[in-house]
Design a protein around this nucleic acid. Structure first.
Length: 350
DNA sequence: AACTCCGACAACCGCTCTTCA
DNA sequence: ATGAAGAGCGGTTGTCGGAGT
């Protein structure tokens, strides 16, 4: 059973407001106020309109000091930054822009700002990729990264940032295929610490702290990365299971709950870069052999789909089979509600 | 000139939240 | 504590006008 309609739909006028209607409504409210009851208002005025419609008309167009169109650059910036922070909370965003209504901002965002923003980001993205490709080409001969984020992984899970994948390797696993010099180079590149005696834990620390919030291997190895990605699934205990060293299969860019991605599900690829492109904390970590650390370790799908896949193609041969088998083992031990995560979707067809 | 397409914007719909009896 | 009514909000739709063919 649905709730009762707020007005008699059959006897209510719909569609655009006439100047006469506007005049009536405006004059009445300016003289008497709304009386705290929008539903009763149209009857008092003699308008064949729904109370909600009157309210909307007043709030969006008739009340004093309303601005329409002509959004300034500053307003654009405010809208963008607030949208990134809080998502489509138009009323809150409108509260920061005097004279603007939520409806106006919403329409402006949907029709113009979103496109404008994405166009700008795409250009910057292309420029970054070009730089990245050059850097990778230069470095790849001397410094190979045995990451588990490879061509196949990327094809099947393009939205998964490489930074989130990196911690999936525990310190021991790193040492399986990285010699001392590679470890040292890695740390230097990541801006981390390096100790001859504690290289493993420090490597892990440095990698885990890429988002600046987890500084110790005593911490949950994923707590720092996953909070960016907004894990919606049950957290895994870092000490109880060997799976603590594997990524939470539930995490995704567009998870439920509050996160910096709130409201960005629509175009996570572009706005992931937007978000990280503005972050200062990764300064100096421009690239890491195909992983754009400056942008959360993310290389977008476009880099692959554009046919310029040399970056990932070169490292695909370095996928670590042992990790794959360990992941499969761990997944088998996971509760059934994790079953939606498929190994093939993570690593691609073997 | 006629038609189609598309962008912009006003308005509606339905849901959730808040208030109050 | 509960339910009804009103208010508020965000997503979606409808309409209009301009550009392109």
């Amino acid at each position: 059973m649905g709730r009762a309609p707020c007005c008699d739909k059959a006897n209510v006028k719909k569609g655009p407001w006439s100047p006469e209607e506007d005049t009536k409504l405006k004059a009445y409210i300016e003289q008497n106020g709304t009386g705290g009851n929008w539903i009763a208002l149209p009857q008092k005025i003699g308008l064949k309109r729904c109370g909600k419609s009157c309210r909307l008309r007043w709030l969006n167009y008739l009340r004093p000091n309303i601005k329409h169109g002509g959004f300034s650059e500053e307003e654009d910036n405010i809208i963008c930054s607030l949208y990134i922070s809080i998502g489509s909370r138009w009323s809150i965003i409108a509260a920061q822009l005097p004279g603007r209504t939520d409806n106006d901002i919403k329409n402006y965002w949907n029709t113009r700002l979103k496109k404008k923003l994405l166009g700008k980001q795409r250009k910057e993205q292309q420029a970054r990729r070009a730089t990245l490709r050059q850097e990778i080409k230069r470095e790849s001969q001397s410094f190979m990264v045995p990451g588990i984020m490879n061509q196949q992984t990327h094809n099947y899970w393009p939205e998964l940032p490489a930074a989130a994948v990196m911690p999936a390797m525990n310190p021991t696993q790193y040492s399986h295929f990285w010699d001392q010099e590679s470890l040292r180079s890695l740390l230097i590149k990541l801006g981390g610490r390096f100790s001859e005696n504690h290289q493993e834990s420090n490597i892990a620390s440095s990698v885990y702290s890429l988002d600046g919030s987890c500084n110790s291997t005593q911490d949950h190895p994923y707590s720092s990365s996953v909070n960016i990605l907004s894990s919606s699934g049950a957290s895994m205990n870092s000490t109880d299971s060997p799976c603590s060293q594997l990524p939470n299969p539930n995490y995704a860019v567009s998870g439920a709950g509050p996160s910096i991605y709130h409201g960005l599900e629509e175009f996570p690829v572009e706005l992931h870069e937007l978000v990280y492109g503005n972050q200062q904390q990764f300064g100096g970590l421009k690239s890491f052999n195909g992983m754009d650390m400056a942008n959360g370790g993310y290389v977008t799908n476009g880099a692959i789909s554009s046919g310029e896949s040399t970056t990932w193609g070169n490292v695909s041969s370095l996928a670590y089979p042992q990790l794959v088998s360990e992941l499969e083992t761990c997944l088998q031990s996971l509760p059934q509600d994790h079953s939606s995560f498929e190994v093939s979707s993570y690593f691609g067809p073997q």
